[in-house]
Nucleic acid binder design. Structure first.
Lengths: 148, 148
DNA sequence: CTACTTGCAAATAATTTGCAACCAG
DNA sequence: CTGGTTGCAAATTATTTGCAAGTAG
Protein backbone atom coordinates (compact mmCIF):
# COMPACT_ATOMS: atom_id res chain seq x y z
CA UNK A 1 0.00 0.00 0.00
CA UNK A 2 2.81 2.43 -0.74
CA UNK A 3 2.62 5.31 -3.18
CA UNK A 4 -0.52 6.85 -4.58
CA UNK A 5 -3.44 4.48 -4.82
CA UNK A 6 -4.06 3.07 -8.27
CA UNK A 7 -7.39 4.83 -8.74
CA UNK A 8 -6.02 8.29 -8.10
CA UNK A 9 -5.16 8.99 -11.69
CA UNK A 10 -8.37 7.45 -12.94
CA UNK A 11 -10.45 9.99 -11.09
CA UNK A 12 -8.33 12.95 -11.98
CA UNK A 13 -8.04 12.01 -15.61
CA UNK A 14 -11.79 11.79 -15.82
CA UNK A 15 -12.06 15.24 -14.30
CA UNK A 16 -13.46 14.22 -10.93
CA UNK A 17 -12.25 15.51 -7.63
CA UNK A 18 -10.30 13.44 -5.21
CA UNK A 19 -12.48 13.78 -2.14
CA UNK A 20 -12.24 12.02 1.17
CA UNK A 21 -15.51 10.07 0.82
CA UNK A 22 -14.42 8.76 -2.57
CA UNK A 23 -11.07 7.72 -1.24
CA UNK A 24 -12.53 5.91 1.73
CA UNK A 25 -15.08 4.13 -0.43
CA UNK A 26 -12.51 3.09 -2.99
CA UNK A 27 -10.27 1.93 -0.22
CA UNK A 28 -13.00 -0.27 1.21
CA UNK A 29 -13.74 -1.70 -2.21
CA UNK A 30 -10.08 -2.35 -2.86
CA UNK A 31 -9.46 -4.13 0.42
CA UNK A 32 -12.62 -6.22 0.48
CA UNK A 33 -13.06 -9.24 -1.71
CA UNK A 34 -16.76 -9.74 -1.23
CA UNK A 35 -19.80 -8.68 -3.20
CA UNK A 36 -20.89 -5.82 -1.02
CA UNK A 37 -24.25 -4.10 -1.05
CA UNK A 38 -24.47 -0.33 -0.85
CA UNK A 39 -25.45 -0.56 2.77
CA UNK A 40 -22.63 -2.90 3.69
CA UNK A 41 -20.21 -0.51 2.08
CA UNK A 42 -21.83 2.34 3.92
CA UNK A 43 -21.42 0.53 7.23
CA UNK A 44 -17.74 -0.17 6.62
CA UNK A 45 -17.14 3.37 5.47
CA UNK A 46 -19.08 4.72 8.37
CA UNK A 47 -16.76 3.05 10.85
CA UNK A 48 -13.76 4.94 9.53
CA UNK A 49 -15.51 8.18 8.83
CA UNK A 50 -18.95 8.54 10.43
CA UNK A 51 -19.58 11.75 8.58
CA UNK A 52 -20.09 10.09 5.23
CA UNK A 53 -23.72 9.65 4.31
CA UNK A 54 -25.48 6.79 2.60
CA UNK A 55 -26.48 8.99 -0.32
CA UNK A 56 -22.85 9.75 -0.99
CA UNK A 57 -22.09 6.06 -1.05
CA UNK A 58 -24.80 5.53 -3.64
CA UNK A 59 -23.62 8.48 -5.69
CA UNK A 60 -20.03 7.32 -5.58
CA UNK A 61 -20.94 3.76 -6.54
CA UNK A 62 -22.89 5.11 -9.49
CA UNK A 63 -19.95 7.22 -10.52
CA UNK A 64 -17.52 4.33 -10.27
CA UNK A 65 -19.87 2.10 -12.21
CA UNK A 66 -20.08 4.67 -14.98
CA UNK A 67 -16.32 4.97 -14.97
CA UNK A 68 -16.09 1.22 -15.28
CA UNK A 69 -14.00 0.81 -12.17
CA UNK A 70 -16.58 -1.38 -10.46
CA UNK A 71 -19.35 -3.70 -11.58
CA UNK A 72 -22.88 -3.63 -10.31
CA UNK A 73 -24.54 -7.00 -9.89
CA UNK A 74 -27.98 -8.19 -9.00
CA UNK A 75 -28.21 -11.63 -7.51
CA UNK A 76 -31.92 -11.53 -6.99
CA UNK A 77 -32.15 -10.58 -3.33
CA UNK A 78 -33.45 -7.12 -4.02
CA UNK A 79 -30.29 -5.16 -3.47
CA UNK A 80 -27.46 -4.37 -5.84
CA UNK A 81 -23.96 -5.56 -5.11
CA UNK A 82 -20.70 -4.03 -6.16
CA UNK A 83 -17.33 -5.43 -7.00
CA UNK A 84 -14.07 -3.91 -8.12
CA UNK A 85 -13.05 -4.62 -11.69
CA UNK A 86 -9.51 -5.96 -11.77
CA UNK A 87 -7.21 -3.98 -13.97
CA UNK A 88 -5.90 -7.04 -15.75
CA UNK A 89 -7.45 -10.15 -17.21
CA UNK A 90 -7.33 -11.44 -13.66
CA UNK A 91 -10.45 -9.53 -12.80
CA UNK A 92 -12.42 -11.53 -15.31
CA UNK A 93 -14.79 -13.99 -13.71
CA UNK A 94 -18.35 -15.23 -13.38
CA UNK A 95 -20.56 -16.21 -10.48
CA UNK A 96 -21.92 -19.29 -8.81
CA UNK A 97 -24.96 -18.46 -6.71
CA UNK A 98 -26.40 -20.65 -3.95
CA UNK A 99 -30.17 -20.49 -4.14
CA UNK A 100 -30.31 -21.64 -0.54
CA UNK A 101 -28.30 -19.07 1.38
CA UNK A 102 -27.40 -16.59 -1.32
CA UNK A 103 -23.70 -17.26 -1.02
CA UNK A 104 -21.79 -16.20 -4.09
CA UNK A 105 -18.58 -17.71 -5.36
CA UNK A 106 -16.47 -16.14 -8.06
CA UNK A 107 -14.82 -18.40 -10.57
CA UNK A 108 -12.61 -17.82 -13.53
CA UNK A 109 -11.04 -21.23 -13.85
CA UNK A 110 -12.10 -21.89 -17.38
CA UNK A 111 -11.38 -18.55 -18.96
CA UNK A 112 -9.31 -20.20 -21.65
CA UNK A 113 -11.93 -22.62 -22.80
CA UNK A 114 -14.58 -19.97 -22.53
CA UNK A 115 -12.84 -17.59 -24.83
CA UNK A 116 -13.28 -19.49 -28.04
CA UNK A 117 -16.80 -20.53 -27.23
CA UNK A 118 -17.89 -17.01 -26.39
CA UNK A 119 -16.01 -15.36 -29.19
CA UNK A 120 -17.76 -17.38 -31.85
CA UNK A 121 -21.04 -16.72 -30.21
CA UNK A 122 -20.49 -13.01 -30.05
CA UNK A 123 -19.68 -12.83 -33.72
CA UNK A 124 -22.72 -14.82 -34.62
CA UNK A 125 -25.06 -12.89 -32.36
CA UNK A 126 -23.66 -9.57 -33.51
CA UNK A 127 -24.48 -10.42 -37.08
CA UNK A 128 -27.83 -11.97 -36.52
CA UNK A 129 -29.21 -9.35 -34.20
CA UNK A 130 -27.18 -6.34 -35.33
CA UNK A 131 -25.88 -5.78 -31.82
CA UNK A 132 -22.45 -4.42 -31.03
CA UNK A 133 -21.69 -6.77 -28.15
CA UNK A 134 -19.19 -5.64 -25.59
CA UNK A 135 -19.53 -7.90 -22.58
CA UNK A 136 -21.24 -10.88 -21.11
CA UNK A 137 -22.03 -12.45 -17.77
CA UNK A 138 -22.59 -16.06 -16.87
CA UNK A 139 -24.37 -17.14 -13.72
CA UNK A 140 -24.69 -20.66 -12.39
CA UNK A 141 -27.32 -21.41 -9.80
CA UNK A 142 -27.23 -24.31 -7.42
CA UNK A 143 -27.04 -25.42 -3.83
CA UNK A 144 -23.83 -25.09 -1.88
CA UNK A 145 -22.46 -27.81 0.35
CA UNK A 146 -23.80 -26.33 3.57
CA UNK A 147 -27.31 -25.99 2.18
CA UNK A 148 -27.61 -29.47 0.72
CA UNK B 1 -56.92 -22.43 -27.42
CA UNK B 2 -59.30 -25.37 -27.07
CA UNK B 3 -59.57 -27.63 -24.07
CA UNK B 4 -58.34 -26.87 -20.58
CA UNK B 5 -55.36 -24.56 -20.49
CA UNK B 6 -52.06 -26.31 -19.98
CA UNK B 7 -51.41 -24.82 -16.57
CA UNK B 8 -54.67 -25.99 -15.09
CA UNK B 9 -53.32 -29.28 -13.90
CA UNK B 10 -50.10 -27.74 -12.68
CA UNK B 11 -51.95 -25.60 -10.20
CA UNK B 12 -54.31 -28.28 -9.03
CA UNK B 13 -51.60 -30.87 -8.71
CA UNK B 14 -49.66 -28.53 -6.52
CA UNK B 15 -52.71 -28.00 -4.37
CA UNK B 16 -53.48 -24.43 -5.36
CA UNK B 17 -56.87 -23.13 -6.22
CA UNK B 18 -57.87 -22.19 -9.72
CA UNK B 19 -58.98 -18.62 -9.18
CA UNK B 20 -59.97 -16.02 -11.71
CA UNK B 21 -56.99 -13.70 -11.06
CA UNK B 22 -54.58 -16.57 -11.52
CA UNK B 23 -56.22 -17.60 -14.74
CA UNK B 24 -56.16 -14.11 -16.18
CA UNK B 25 -52.55 -13.60 -15.21
CA UNK B 26 -51.48 -16.93 -16.66
CA UNK B 27 -53.42 -16.16 -19.78
CA UNK B 28 -51.63 -12.87 -20.23
CA UNK B 29 -48.28 -14.53 -19.67
CA UNK B 30 -49.10 -17.26 -22.13
CA UNK B 31 -50.21 -14.93 -24.88
CA UNK B 32 -47.46 -12.34 -24.51
CA UNK B 33 -43.95 -12.96 -25.71
CA UNK B 34 -42.24 -10.06 -24.01
CA UNK B 35 -40.37 -9.73 -20.75
CA UNK B 36 -43.07 -8.06 -18.75
CA UNK B 37 -42.67 -6.22 -15.49
CA UNK B 38 -45.15 -6.73 -12.69
CA UNK B 39 -46.77 -3.44 -13.48
CA UNK B 40 -47.06 -4.16 -17.19
CA UNK B 41 -48.74 -7.42 -16.35
CA UNK B 42 -50.99 -5.63 -13.92
CA UNK B 43 -52.00 -3.15 -16.61
CA UNK B 44 -52.84 -5.87 -19.11
CA UNK B 45 -54.72 -7.86 -16.52
CA UNK B 46 -56.49 -4.78 -15.36
CA UNK B 47 -57.96 -4.17 -18.79
CA UNK B 48 -59.74 -7.50 -18.77
CA UNK B 49 -60.63 -7.54 -15.13
CA UNK B 50 -60.29 -4.20 -13.33
CA UNK B 51 -60.98 -5.79 -9.98
CA UNK B 52 -57.61 -7.50 -9.76
CA UNK B 53 -55.12 -5.66 -7.59
CA UNK B 54 -51.44 -5.12 -8.07
CA UNK B 55 -50.64 -7.03 -4.88
CA UNK B 56 -52.36 -10.07 -6.28
CA UNK B 57 -50.27 -9.83 -9.40
CA UNK B 58 -47.13 -9.79 -7.29
CA UNK B 59 -48.32 -12.69 -5.18
CA UNK B 60 -49.24 -14.72 -8.21
CA UNK B 61 -45.94 -14.05 -9.93
CA UNK B 62 -44.16 -15.18 -6.79
CA UNK B 63 -46.22 -18.32 -6.69
CA UNK B 64 -45.57 -19.12 -10.32
CA UNK B 65 -41.89 -18.47 -9.88
CA UNK B 66 -41.79 -20.89 -6.95
CA UNK B 67 -43.69 -23.44 -9.02
CA UNK B 68 -41.15 -22.99 -11.77
CA UNK B 69 -43.71 -22.04 -14.36
CA UNK B 70 -42.17 -18.64 -14.96
CA UNK B 71 -38.71 -17.12 -14.61
CA UNK B 72 -37.95 -13.89 -12.85
CA UNK B 73 -35.25 -11.77 -14.44
CA UNK B 74 -33.49 -8.60 -13.52
CA UNK B 75 -32.03 -6.62 -16.37
CA UNK B 76 -30.74 -3.84 -14.21
CA UNK B 77 -33.47 -1.24 -14.63
CA UNK B 78 -34.75 -1.61 -11.11
CA UNK B 79 -37.78 -3.73 -11.80
CA UNK B 80 -38.13 -7.48 -12.12
CA UNK B 81 -39.37 -9.01 -15.33
CA UNK B 82 -41.19 -12.25 -15.85
CA UNK B 83 -41.28 -14.79 -18.61
CA UNK B 84 -43.04 -18.07 -19.10
CA UNK B 85 -40.86 -21.15 -19.04
CA UNK B 86 -41.48 -23.25 -22.12
CA UNK B 87 -42.57 -26.75 -21.36
CA UNK B 88 -40.10 -28.26 -23.79
CA UNK B 89 -36.45 -27.64 -24.59
CA UNK B 90 -37.77 -24.88 -26.81
CA UNK B 91 -38.18 -22.62 -23.85
CA UNK B 92 -34.46 -22.69 -23.28
CA UNK B 93 -32.75 -19.43 -24.15
CA UNK B 94 -30.54 -16.60 -22.98
CA UNK B 95 -30.65 -12.82 -23.32
CA UNK B 96 -29.05 -10.05 -25.26
CA UNK B 97 -29.49 -6.72 -23.52
CA UNK B 98 -29.06 -3.31 -25.14
CA UNK B 99 -27.35 -1.01 -22.68
CA UNK B 100 -28.71 1.94 -24.62
CA UNK B 101 -32.45 1.45 -24.61
CA UNK B 102 -32.86 -1.63 -22.46
CA UNK B 103 -34.27 -3.68 -25.30
CA UNK B 104 -33.99 -7.39 -24.68
CA UNK B 105 -33.68 -10.10 -27.29
CA UNK B 106 -34.03 -13.78 -26.55
CA UNK B 107 -31.77 -16.17 -28.35
CA UNK B 108 -31.32 -19.89 -28.28
CA UNK B 109 -29.56 -20.41 -31.58
CA UNK B 110 -26.53 -22.13 -30.22
CA UNK B 111 -28.11 -24.49 -27.73
CA UNK B 112 -26.33 -27.42 -29.28
CA UNK B 113 -22.86 -26.01 -29.06
CA UNK B 114 -23.57 -24.66 -25.62
CA UNK B 115 -24.51 -27.99 -24.22
CA UNK B 116 -21.09 -29.59 -24.23
CA UNK B 117 -19.38 -26.45 -23.12
CA UNK B 118 -21.71 -25.91 -20.20
CA UNK B 119 -21.90 -29.55 -19.23
CA UNK B 120 -18.17 -29.84 -18.75
CA UNK B 121 -18.16 -26.63 -16.82
CA UNK B 122 -20.92 -27.72 -14.52
CA UNK B 123 -19.16 -30.93 -13.68
CA UNK B 124 -15.95 -29.14 -12.97
CA UNK B 125 -17.54 -26.40 -10.92
CA UNK B 126 -19.63 -28.88 -8.99
CA UNK B 127 -16.56 -30.73 -7.91
CA UNK B 128 -14.37 -27.80 -7.18
CA UNK B 129 -16.89 -25.78 -5.22
CA UNK B 130 -19.08 -28.59 -3.92
CA UNK B 131 -22.16 -27.04 -5.47
CA UNK B 132 -25.07 -29.00 -6.82
CA UNK B 133 -25.63 -26.91 -9.93
CA UNK B 134 -29.05 -26.95 -11.50
CA UNK B 135 -29.24 -24.06 -13.90
CA UNK B 136 -27.39 -21.23 -15.52
CA UNK B 137 -28.03 -17.97 -17.28
CA UNK B 138 -25.97 -16.15 -19.84
CA UNK B 139 -26.36 -12.47 -20.59
CA UNK B 140 -24.72 -10.55 -23.38
CA UNK B 141 -24.60 -6.78 -23.20
CA UNK B 142 -24.19 -4.48 -26.14
CA UNK B 143 -25.73 -1.77 -28.25
CA UNK B 144 -28.56 -2.52 -30.60
CA UNK B 145 -28.76 -1.21 -34.11
CA UNK B 146 -31.07 1.65 -33.30
CA UNK B 147 -28.87 2.87 -30.48
CA UNK B 148 -25.58 2.77 -32.32
C1' DC C 1 -12.92 31.92 -5.77
C1' DT C 2 -16.24 28.64 -7.89
C1' DA C 3 -17.81 24.50 -9.39
C1' DC C 4 -18.03 20.07 -8.03
C1' DT C 5 -19.40 17.42 -3.81
C1' DT C 6 -21.55 16.32 0.24
C1' DG C 7 -25.00 15.49 4.18
C1' DC C 8 -29.35 15.52 5.53
C1' DA C 9 -34.04 15.06 5.05
C1' DA C 10 -37.70 14.39 2.14
C1' DA C 11 -39.28 12.13 -2.05
C1' DT C 12 -39.69 8.04 -5.18
C1' DA C 13 -40.41 3.48 -6.75
C1' DA C 14 -40.90 -1.25 -6.33
C1' DT C 15 -42.49 -4.72 -3.63
C1' DT C 16 -44.59 -6.66 0.72
C1' DT C 17 -47.84 -7.21 4.39
C1' DG C 18 -52.05 -6.96 7.63
C1' DC C 19 -56.56 -7.98 7.65
C1' DA C 20 -61.44 -8.30 6.79
C1' DA C 21 -64.22 -9.91 3.02
C1' DC C 22 -64.58 -13.51 -0.53
C1' DC C 23 -65.17 -17.82 -2.92
C1' DA C 24 -63.31 -22.44 -4.84
C1' DG C 25 -63.64 -26.99 -3.66
C1' DC D 1 -68.70 -24.72 5.37
C1' DT D 2 -63.76 -23.20 5.64
C1' DG D 3 -59.20 -22.39 4.66
C1' DG D 4 -56.83 -20.67 0.70
C1' DT D 5 -57.15 -16.08 -1.77
C1' DT D 6 -58.01 -11.48 -2.69
C1' DG D 7 -58.33 -6.22 -2.58
C1' DC D 8 -57.19 -2.34 -0.42
C1' DA D 9 -54.44 0.55 2.20
C1' DA D 10 -50.59 1.06 4.92
C1' DA D 11 -45.88 -0.41 5.63
C1' DT D 12 -41.20 -1.57 4.12
C1' DT D 13 -37.00 -1.33 1.43
C1' DA D 14 -33.84 0.23 -1.70
C1' DT D 15 -32.45 4.06 -4.03
C1' DT D 16 -32.80 9.02 -5.63
C1' DT D 17 -33.15 13.93 -5.29
C1' DG D 18 -33.36 18.99 -3.64
C1' DC D 19 -30.76 22.15 -1.59
C1' DA D 20 -27.85 24.75 1.47
C1' DA D 21 -23.25 24.22 3.23
C1' DG D 22 -18.48 22.49 2.44
C1' DT D 23 -14.10 22.09 -0.06
C1' DA D 24 -10.71 20.61 -3.81
C1' DG D 25 -8.17 22.62 -7.23
Amino acid sequence: MRGPPWWRGKLKDAGFRLTLPRQIILNVLTTTPKHLSAEEIFLLVHKKYPGIGLATVYRTLDLLTDMNLISKFDFGDGRSRYELIGRSRKGYHHHLVCVGCGRIVNFSDFAERERSFIQNLEIELSQRYKFKIDSHRIYFYGVCKDCQ
